[in-house]
Design a protein around this nucleic acid. Structure first.
Lengths: 116, 116
DNA sequence: TTAGGGGTTCACGCCAGCGTGAAGGTCAAG
DNA sequence: CTTGACCTTCACGCTGGCGTGAACCCCTAA
């Protein structure tokens, strides 16, 4: 399928899909006229990427994840994964601390409201 | 105290402190020569701002928080606070969803590792 | 007087994930 | 042949929180 159709079926803009290609997240084949050709199996891939973007992961991290996953499919080595795992842990920890900070701020707000 | 001393004592760069002033988060008095003059009480203020920045809050939101807090001190109205509270809730919810997405990704990573 | 270590105001750079034209090729339908 | 809906490649804009000079003033000590 062409980029427009994939965009429509995934809810991700065509611009974003081209961006993913720039970042080597999803590199489609090309037709004779230069058009990008995607397959059905690219739909779940896009969903994956979309979810990871929403999770706050950078494209670079996602690309490493994809590489790791492909390597995994072929049953080869998983040597890059530990770094990745650590990165996800670090990110999760960061989100934790942010949530705590926000909670504290919110509590201070409540304190102000009930104080006087 | 001057900006350099406050920077050193708070661990926030002088550049950042000037940025806070641009954003009306912390507006110091000025000496005859134009130097910014901060007071001791600005130290905890900076700590506050620093924490809220780390929490992922935007300077605009922080400024509204500060205005609200001042208003609270003087016992006047708290009419701007509901919006703020809602904003903090929304942000916290966003962090929640991101954490879930990261957790899922991490689980998929584990699945890959144990799959084969 | 000179150096040095404060301070000041611009104003551009950076990262990230796209949005948004601009300018033009492709292709099927009327 | 023309319209119009697709597609292509630049390439600048935007948001945010600063970093990093540049060019210049202020004050003190040697």
């Amino acid at each position: 399928m062409l980029i427009g159709e994939l965009a429509e079926r995934t809810g991700v803009s065509a611009r974003a899909l081209r961006h993913y290609e720039d970042r080597d997240l999803l590199v489609p084949a090309r037709d004779a006229n230069g058009y990008r050709i995607y397959s059905e199996s690219d739909i779940p891939r896009v969903a994956q990427i979309k979810a990871m973007i929403a999770a706050g992961l950078g494209t670079d991290t996602i690309r490493r994840y994809i590489d790791c996953a492909r390597t995994g499919d072929h049953g080869v080595s998983l040597e890059m994964c530990p770094d990745l795992r650590a990165e996800l842990d670090a990110l999760a920890a960061l989100l934790d601390s942010r949530q705590n900070a926000i909670r504290e701020t919110r509590e201070r707000l409540c304190a102000l409201a009930s104080d006087h």
